[in-house]
Design a protein around this nucleic acid. Structure first.
Lengths: 246, 246
DNA sequence: TAATTGCTGTGTACCTTATACACAGTTAAT
DNA sequence: ATTAACTGTGTATAAGGTACACAGCAATTA
């Protein structure tokens, strides 16, 4: 029963944290030294510099100059901290309004803005891929921007949503790829994997041919160009056929 | 320096494990009770039933009836165990040869086979998304099948590779979505998130409209249909324009 | 003004997990 | 028969997340 693992989380509290809801009750006692978002920013700083694996409650506390347990006054626990880090990293959703009209350049710009964020915060990929995470206001704002760009297409809401997911999934996976190859020590892995392939070339003829033709060498052009062209072309096809039908 | 975190892993040993390479040296001593793959299968059983979070060395050892430390005779550590679990779960790559000719039905079938595996082993998504993992023989076989399907297109090797990544990324993200909504307790999250959106409807007009039109309700049709159509259409466009040019 | 109450940060303690290390038993090569 | 390599075990260590009780502080209440 996978539910047990999540049994600790209180959806209400998690969402309240993300949306910055302070219950209006009177606040007695000492003023808090920080806000939850400040805690999250410290976490982001650590994760940016050393990866999500280096993020521990102790590290964050240390960076803020308080005890580990003090953090629990600000966030319910580590998972919620990460959720807040995600939403905080996603502040500044793109403003697509000033772009030339047309869904295509806007969705294109959205995708590239998206990638910029993923590149600036590589841990975002891991943090958002693992589990269903609560959506915070900034994440919703990103979604809103993309959906808004697609509204003039005349596609129905579900298709608009599907299209966004499609573009997002492309960006996520390409970024993952890029980050992987950028990582140090990758040379060694590549070398060994290539050797392994060479040893079993007969079992994997298509891969072997692709390797020989340089499909896995670092790309000259931006892989996002190819993917976006495909995906946007595909969406365009839908838009046009939907337009004809109506 | 993110490298430090990985400093323990020995690429050579990891790959040797995945590819089942036994050094031909004479084996003295007691026969091992299991093979690494058997250990991995136990891990898969646990992860299938209770998720990747429930996977611990102790659980696996318990299931096999040995001490925790005995596992370290079979796998170098937990990360390598997970890599082996991944490759083991990916045995039985699809046989696309018996399908009607044409890259499109084959790539379509490949994508659906892919999704079947991800659905059967939900932890695969998390396990393969987190970090660069070593490619094992079965993973390569899957890649080979997809690349082989694309060879008749005449696209160059890099484009073939890009196309595969594109389709894979689609499948991965859609499956993620599906798994998310299938999860228990999700109702509560959805309810609260919806309430949150309603409270801030003015900030997120496009999302609000989409929600009102039911874009987030459980889909009647298969979301993969839409995505694959888009993506394959996009690829087809490339194939045709490449064909004309040559 | 004084009492109260709810809040803050601290210190300590507990539990889970991965894994290093030394040991005892086993078996194939010598 | 001896030995060397290998197996599984037991013990120990080190992180890391988090529960809990306490001491002090400040705004509400009397």
């Amino acid at each position: 029963m996978p539910a047990s693992r999540e049994s600790k989380r209180d959806p209400g509290a998690s969402l309240a944290l993300l949306w910055g809801e302070a219950d209006g009750r009177p606040r007695r006692g000492p003023k808090p030294k920080f806000t939850p978002v400040q805690v999250a920013r410290s976490g982001i700083e650590i994760a940016d510099a050393e990866g999500l694996a280096a993020l521990s409650m102790q590290r964050v506390a240390e960076m803020l100059g308080v005890t580990t347990m003090a953090l629990y006054r600000y966030v319910p626990g580590k998972p919620d901290l990460i959720d807040l880090m995600v939403d905080t990293a996603l502040d500044s959703p793109p403003d697509l309004g000033h772009l030339p009209d047309g869904w295509r350049p806007r969705l294109d710009a959205w995708a590239r803005a998206c990638r910029r964020v993923y590149r600036a915060h590589p841990w975002l990929l891991a943090a958002t891929g693992l589990r269903r995470q609560a959506m915070g206001p900034h994440q919703v704002a990103w979604l809103d921007a993309a959906l808004a760009a697609l509204e003039p297409t005349g596609l129905d809401a579900r298709r608009r949503h599907d299209a966004v997911i499609l573009v997002l999934s492309l960006v996520r996976n390409l970024t993952q790829q890029t980050l992987d190859s950028d990582e140090r020590g990758d040379r060694e892995w590549d070398r060994l994997t290539t050797r392994q392939l060479a040893l079993h070339a007969d079992r994997f003829p298509a891969v072997t041919r692709a390797v020989a033709e340089g499909a896995f060498a670092p790309a000259g052009d931006d892989p996002l160009d190819f993917g976006l062209t495909c995906v946007l072309d595909g969406i365009q096809g839908l838009v046009e056929s939907a337009g004809q039908r109506s």
